[in-house]
Every structure is written in structure tokens, then in C-alpha cells.
Design a protein around this nucleic acid. Structure first.
Lengths: 220, 220
DNA sequence: CTTGGCGTCGAACGGTCGTTTGAACGCGGA
DNA sequence: TCCGCGTTCAAACGACCGTTCGACGCCAAG
């Protein structure tokens, strides 16, 4: 079991020695997640991080490179967590995890990170923003980073071998859309529409609802 | 039946007499849809439309107002088409259309507009972009424009009265996500992932696949 | 023919942006 | 004590942005 996605990568930057770089990184992630990439200037970032204006270009080369580095690290962490959960589900089920567990491995990490008390909440918002507002370079990474998706496609195929592969891929496509569109702003509309019936849910309750829907859709 | 959403609104601007305004409108919609709002300057628009730089501010007041006017007209047209299809489905079914027909009334208009030979393809791309990159003002309109969504929620409740209203709203929420995330860029990833198994589909085939998934999810 | 309003035009304004510059600083090693 | 290097600093550069301005042509009404 020498799975590259399951191993922690070596620390790429030694932030303990460069507090400024870490401060810029965190401030940039926070501001990008809250206001969008184009609406945050280098001056905003350095002001939030309480560092000099030139720090961004000194430590990261350019504003674009800074964004890309945040994006690369966060998506890598997220996909590694998903791979870990899928791996565990396979171990528990003796090789062939059920559909619901496969989907859970994909849904749960970003949902749990996004829970109000989790400090990774900002990272999830950042990734969601990057998906729609990101550079062409970043979107290309997302499109080509198919290796970790292939695991889920394979697992789903194994769980329902009678389903044509074409259907597996299309329904996986729809499922990906469900989780990727989960911008927090959309919940406001839901609550507004229902007149308050849909009360704030805990993460596990929301996860359960999503899994009910996605599982039924996949097995249609 | 005096339904305001079913009536065509009067022409708000007499474009026949002001060719410049129409040229700016169309050029802006095209460029915004292709490159995003923030990446298109007023100079780009006026160059594409072959009009003077000051035309945007003269005819629309500001760049923001121009975007907002395009957005308001296109979403209005789209929602009117959806309301029309829901109305027809209700008429055919004698008041209570089945779940699949309700969902079809929501899915079909943007999908058909987005087909390669349809000249409204650009408008759909524009709306999709506006949903994620739009001004706070525009996102507020989307969030508060719940009246047309309430029709679909009511129709779904009537089609499945045994389902708790809370579930209706949550599942409608997931269904909305399915169609809203349908950026065209995502299809590339699907085709890449499947190794080409998922061949290009005609619009009706894709619509049918989406309805299979959404219907099963809703009835879970 | 004159007048006035409307649309268009080239030009410019004020501001913000990402990035660069060169000097100053702090600190471990010669 | 002095040097060298990595880092931080204030300041400025050049480009691009949305918007505004005043002049001009045009055509219909007086």
C-alpha cells in the first residue's frame, strides 16, 4: 500500500522561521475567501497581516503565485482527507465499500471543515471561490486532477457492477455538482423560501440529508 | 389567470431607435459571459461594439448598471419561460403535474438555451457567471426572488403531500444546485475522467439523465 | 435661418492597482 | 568589530481603470 495520496507531503515551506510569510498566507486566504480574489488588493492583504506592502512579491513572487500556492495546498489537504476516508471505508468493508460510504468519503471532509466551530471553515470557502473565480491555471489543475476522482469512480463501479460505466460517470458528475455548489449564500435563499422551516442543521444532519439524496439519485 | 410572471413585460427600451445602446448591451453580455465581469473593461466593451468609450456611461449610467440591466432582463426571461412550462404542465395534468414534469419545467429552459445552435447560449453563460461573480446587489435579487421558486415548491408539495415540507425544501435546494453548477467547463473534467466514454450528448438526452437523477433523489 | 436638445466624439482626470527600487535593518559568523 | 546576507521598509513607477468634460454634428421645431 504505497499510495501517494495517503502520505503526508514534506513541509514545503518552513513557516516557523518566516512568520511574515505565514501571516501573508493566512491573511490572503481569509480575505480571498470572504471578498473574492479580484476584490482584494495586495495592500489589503499586507494591511490585514500587518506587514510591509512588498512582502507579497518578496515571499511569493506575485499576487497570482500567492493565490495559486494557497489553492494548491488546500486542495491537496482536502483530497488527501477524502482519500483517507475512502481508504478506511474500504478497509472496514473488506475491499468493497457500499455506495453510501463512498459518497460519504467525498462529502464529509468539506462539510465538516465548514462547520462553524472549525478553523478550516475559511479554507473551504476559499476553495469554493477558487473553483469559480480562479485563474485559468487553477481551473486547469482542477480539470486535470482526475487521479483522486478516479478512485471514487472505480469504487462506485465496484459497488454497482451492473450499472453501465457511462451512467456511473454521469451520476458521479451530478453528485460532484451537489457538493461543489454548496456556497453558504445559497442557504439564505433556502431559509427565506421555506419561511424558516428549514432550521439551522448540525453538520451530520446536513450530511445525512445530502447522502439520502445523492444515494437515491445514483441508484435511480 | 392574471399571473404577472406569465405576461410579457412592455419593452423597456426602444432599441430600434438607439442602435448604439443595443450594440453595447450585446457586446457586454458576450464579453462578460466569456471572460467574467471583472476581466472586461468598459474599453473592451466599446471596442467590441465599435462605439465610443463614453457610450456605456451615457446610455447605462455606469458599468455596474449595465451589468445589472443585462442580468435583470435575462433572468426575467428565463424565469418567465420556466413559469410558462410549469403552467402548461399543470394544464395538461389537470392541476397536479407529476414530479418529473415539475422538475423538467425548471431544468429544460436553461439547458435548451445552452444548446450549441441556440443563440441564447451566451445568455445562459452570462447568468451562470452572474450567479457567482455578480455584485452584492445582484446576488440579493437572486436570494429575494423567491416568488418564482415558491411555485415550484408548492407544486412539489402538492405532488407528494405525504413528504414533510422540510424535506421538500431541502431536496429542492439540492436540485437547484444541480442545475446551477452546470458550468460548461465541468463537462471537460467529466469527459477527461471517463476517458471519453461519456460522449457528447444531445440536449434532450442530458435533460433525461438529469431528470432521472433528480427525480430519484427527490423521492428518496 | 435660428435654436435647442440629443447622441457622439476625442481627450483628459483622479484614483487604484501590482510591482519594483534602493536604502536601512538585524543578526550570526569571521 | 566588521562583513555579508536575508529580510523589511518607505516611496515611487507605470499601467490601467471607470468616469467626466466640453466641443461638435445633426435634425426637427419655432
Amino acid at each position: 500500500m504505497t499510495d501517494p495520496l495517503l502520505q503526508d507531503p514534506p513541509d514545503e515551506t518552513d513557516e516557523a522561521q518566516v512568520a511574515t510569510k505565514a501571516a501573508v498566507f493566512n491573511a490572503a486566504e481569509r480575505l480571498f475567501a470572504l471578498h473574492g480574489f479580484q476584490n482584494v488588493s495586495v495592500r489589503d492583504i499586507t494591511a490585514e497581516a500587518r506587514v510591509n506592502l512588498a512582502s507579497v512579491n518578496y515571499h511569493f513572487g506575485s499576487k497570482d503565485s500567492l493565490l495559486f500556492e494557497i489553492f494548491r495546498r488546500r486542495t491537496s489537504e482536502l483530497n488527501r482527507e477524502r482519500a483517507r476516508m475512502l481508504h478506511e471505508a474500504a478497509a472496514e468493508a473488506g475491499g468493497k465499500p457500499p455506495v453510501r460510504e463512498i459518497l460519504k468519503a467525498y462529502f464529509a471532509p468539506p462539510l465538516r471543515w465548514a462547520s462553524p466551530d472549525n478553523d478550516r471553515r475559511i479554507s473551504v470557502q476559499f476553495i469554493i471561490r477558487a473553483r469559480s473565480e480562479g485563474t485559468a491555471e487553477m481551473r486547469e489543475v482542477l480539470r486535470n486532477d482526475v487521479s483522486h476522482l478516479a478512485r471514487f469512480a472505480d469504487a462506485l463501479t465496484a459497488a454497482r457492477p451492473e450499472l453501465p460505466k457511462e451512467d456511473v460517470y454521469w451520476r458521479l458528475h451530478f453528485i460532484l455538482g451537489m457538493v461543489h455548489q454548496n456556497r453558504f449564500a445559497e442557504f439564505d435563499r433556502l431559509h427565506h423560501l421555506s419561511g424558516g422551516i428549514t432550521r439551522e442543521q448540525d453538520v451530520e444532519g446536513l450530511l445525512s440529508r445530502m447522502l439520502d439524496f445523492a444515494e437515491a439519485g445514483f441508484l435511480a
